[in-house]
């Protein structure tokens, strides 16, 4: 598979503390990669190393199959980025802010109007950024990142400070990028719900380590519902289910069925009825992605 981003044993130490340790990130072309982790997990540090803002203590960063160390400028020509809080020059207008980047990127002037249109800031193009709301500044940052139509867009917490309608717009914009321009997008966030709605691949990082990296479908599988059954004698029911070759767990006040489909659930319930158990309740318990995420990061922290 062709990877746009590939890091190998990426490590960054600040003094003795390891902010990022042995991180292996792989992003295939055309994906929207959600980079998840609690605050302070090392997301921004990783992104800084991807952009060559920081030097890794050890390990390597490869983008577009080229090594960051020796091809920094070449690589950056194809990357647009928005790192953490948006950076801007408050005394300049939105247009002038983009012009400052445009001069360096050497793209045609009409791109400025195009990207301003895309993030819906064309109405305030000639106003000083000083008076913008946080959401507008954020959108300006994204406009700057898209100025040169990069192959890879790196957005660090792009929906910070946006209102709900702004978040939806941003989501639609980001989702359209791979199809329309063949861009690959890396989005970091500490909010799983956000990533869940946009990403096609997920990487979860905690304490500087990558603890999960796969497609969003695989992650969703973890979130599959389990069926809880409450009967008059939970332990006896559990034993007879196991004896019948059914996977089940005994819990305090119920039995949890690990069933793969509805048919299996029906068969198990029928079996329990036939065995003469009184069934009080059958209920579905959904494990949200949120829970999985919490569990993943918790395990990492306690271990």
């Amino acid at each position: 598979m062709e990877y746009i981003v590939e890091t190998k044993h990426l490590t960054k130490k600040f003094g003795k503390e390891e902010a990022v340790s042995n991180l292996e990130m792989k992003i295939p072309k055309g994906e929207i990669y959600g980079f998840l982790g609690p605050n302070g997990a090392g997301k921004t540090t990783t992104i800084r190393m991807l952009l060559g803002l920081m030097r890794p203590t050890s390990g390597s960063v490869q983008l577009f199959g080229k090594d960051m160390k020796n091809n920094r400028i070449d690589i950056l020509k194809n990357i647009g980025s928005l790192v953490e809080n948006p950076s801007y020059y408050p005394h300049l207008t939105a247009k002038e802010n983009l012009e400052a980047s445009r001069k360096i990127l050497n793209v045609p002037k009409k791109r400025i109007d195009e990207v301003l249109q895309q993030v819906r800031l064309h109405g305030v193009a000639n106003k000083k950024v000083k008076g913008f709301s946080l959401g507008m500044k954020q959108r300006l940052g994204i406009a700057a990142a898209m100025l040169h139509q990069p192959e890879l867009l790196i957005l660090d917490e792009p929906t910070n400070g946006l209102d709900p309608s702004g978040i939806i717009e941003m989501r639609q914009l980001i989702q359209s990028l791979p199809e329309e321009y063949g861009m690959t997008v890396l989005i970091s966030s500490h909010l799983l719900s956000e990533i869940d709605q946009m990403a096609t691949r997920v990487g979860v990082v905690s304490k500087g380590k990558m603890i999960f990296q796969d497609s969003i479908e695989t992650m969703r599988k973890f979130a599959q519902a389990s069926i809880q059954v409450k009967v008059n004698d939970n332990e006896a029911a559990w034993r007879s289910l196991l004896a019948n070759g059914q996977k089940a767990d005994l819990e305090k006040e119920s039995v949890t069925l690990q069933a793969e489909d509805d048919g299996q659930v029906a068969a198990s319930i029928r079996y329990l009825v036939q065995q003469g158990f009184s069934i009080y309740r059958v209920q579905e318990e959904k494990r949200s992605l949120e829970n999985i995420f919490l569990e993943m990061t918790k395990e990492e922290q306690s271990g």
């Binding site: 952009l51 060559g52 400028i73 020509k77 980025s81 950076s87 801007y88 020059y89 408050p90």
Partner: peptide, 18 residues
Amino acid sequence: SIEDETNAWKQLVALPVS
């Protein structure tokens, strides 16, 4: 201070310039 104000250094250095 123009670059410091909103930490625009990171945005500037992330452009394809040495």
